[in-house]
Amino acid sequence: MLVLVLSVVVLLVIGGCVCVFWAARGDAPRWARGVAKVTLLGSELARSASRKSSSSQSGSGDD
């Protein structure tokens, strides 16, 4: 079951990356541009969450 869920997630990520590439070329339909925006928003959220967790870990070290 876990393999199935991870496979679906990987396929969604790959599809989002394809839509980002397609939209960057400029000839993508409206739905692909929407998927690309959602993918880029998700990557920004993941990046900001990663920054927050790494900054909290580096600031909480023992002396």
Rank of each mutant, 00 (worst) to 15 (best):
L6G: 01
G16V: 04
G61M: 13
V8M: 05
Q57W: 15
R51L: 11
A36S: 05
V35N: 12
F21Q: 07
E44P: 00
V13W: 12
V9D: 00
R33H: 12
K52E: 12
A28K: 03
S58N: 08
C17N: 11
W22M: 04
V20T: 01
S60L: 09
C17Q: 13
S50T: 08
M1F: 14
V3R: 10
L2T: 10
L40G: 06
F21T: 08
A36M: 01
P29D: 14
V10F: 14
S43Y: 10
L6M: 07
S55D: 14
G34R: 15
S53L: 12
A23I: 02
V9S: 01
G34M: 15
W22Y: 11
A24L: 11
S56Q: 13
A49N: 08
W31A: 04
G15R: 09
D63I: 10
S58L: 06
L2P: 00
A32F: 08
A36K: 05
A23S: 13
L2C: 03
L6Y: 09
R25W: 10
D62S: 15
V10R: 05
W31M: 02
S58R: 07
S60N: 14
A24R: 11
R33M: 03
V5M: 07
L4I: 13
G16R: 05
S53V: 14
L4M: 10
G16F: 06
L6E: 04
G16D: 03
G34N: 15
L6P: 00
F21Y: 14
L6V: 10
A24D: 09
A23M: 02
V10A: 13
L40W: 11
S50F: 06
V10E: 06
I14R: 03
S60H: 08
S43F: 12
S55T: 13
A36P: 03
L12T: 05
A28Y: 05
C19S: 13
L11R: 07
S58P: 00
G34K: 15
G34D: 15
W31D: 01
A24Q: 06
L45W: 01
K37L: 14
V3P: 02
S43V: 09
S55W: 10
L45N: 01
V18G: 01
A49H: 02
G16N: 06
L11N: 03
L11S: 12
T39P: 10
V18P: 00
R47P: 01
L6W: 05
D62R: 14
S53I: 13
V18C: 03
G61A: 06
M1H: 12
V18K: 02
A28C: 11
G16M: 01
D63R: 13
L40S: 07
P29E: 14
C19H: 04
S60Q: 11
K52H: 06
Q57P: 02
